[in-house]
């Protein structure tokens, strides 16, 4: 995965360098640094690709990591232009250093099981079975907070064997078959292909993860950054997100 991203970034860099001089918004091209939540790795790479194609001469580079880490980096003054996080709380953390944020997509949780469902998992109640090996995100990270809310909503006291650092770590343990079930985002199940099966969670829609995007205060490229945010909010970006299983921003939760 990481290699693929690195290769993708390399290819993007090359196409951007070989492109003709830009026009429209940025006469002389420009470079954009986007900090984005790890769960956006695949979709943002694709959106960035399309954005560069639409804006010749522009180079978009990404740094993908956990939302909290990204928020800390922005507060610490990392040279970034756009911040996209996977939770309201993390965007709030960075509020002092960003413009007004907007919800650009949503995501809901799903139970992920290894191909063939060796643990015979059928629903949330199975996550309380001490005989099954279960992975959840730690409550300190957005996916863990969402998982805790979903479980609480369903009245289930889960018996996890591990609280992972981020949603990708949960997904990896499911793919490897080390756990019988894990709670991850719908989009993660989609990205894992045949290795993982998704099981719908009743009431998952109640706890929806909102993804926020904002221009970082003090950016050298305010116009270009604004253009990228609008591109993500508009049709081209939304199409890519929808194809990967993300929800539309219109369905965003009342309190975020």
């Amino acid at each position: 995965m990481a290699v693929g991203v690195a290769l993708g970034a390399l290819v993007l860099g090359i196409t951007a360098c070989s492109g003709p001089d830009g026009h429209e918004r940025s006469e002389d091209g420009g470079e954009l640094t986007v900090l984005a939540a790890a769960s956006l790795t695949d979709v943002f790479a694709e959106i960035g690709d399309a954005f560069e194609a639409a804006n010749p001469g522009v180079t978009v580079s990404f740094s993908f990591a956990g939302s909290a880490v990204l928020a800390q980096q922005v507060i610490a003054g990392a040279p970034a232009d756009v911040l996209a996080t996977a939770s309201t709380a993390t965007m709030d953390t960075a509020a002092a250093m960003t413009g007004p944020p907007e919800v650009f997509t949503t995501n809901t949780l799903e139970i992920a099981v290894p191909a063939g469902n060796p643990g015979g998992v059928t629903g949330l109640a199975d996550l309380a079975d001490p005989g099954l090996t279960v992975a959840l995100c730690a409550e300190e990270v957005p996916c863990g907070a969402a998982a805790a809310a979903v479980l609480a909503g369903a009245g289930v006291t889960a018996a996890p064997d591990t609280y992972e650092q981020d949603v990708r770590a949960v997904l990896t343990k499911v793919i490897l078959g080390e756990v019988d079930a894990g709670l991850v985002y719908r989009t993660d199940v989609a990205s894992a292909g045949d290795d993982v099966e998704g099981i719908d969670v009743a009431g998952a829609d109640v706890v929806r993860n909102d993804y926020w995007i904002s221009v970082v205060t003090g950016t050298d490229e305010p116009d270009l950054a604004r253009a990228f945010v609008e591109y993500v909010l508009a049709e081209p970006g939304q199409a890519v997100l929808a194809a990967a299983g993300f929800g539309s921003p219109e369905s965003a939760g009342v309190d975020g």
Binding site: E140, Y163, Q165
Partner: peptide
Amino acid sequence: TVTFAGSLPGVTRTMPLAIYLAMESDP
């Protein structure tokens, strides 16, 4: 450790894991 043993308080969550996790919520 985090890859092979996971992270469960009292069982597998050692100091470095707890520190990294704390970075997420309370630096």
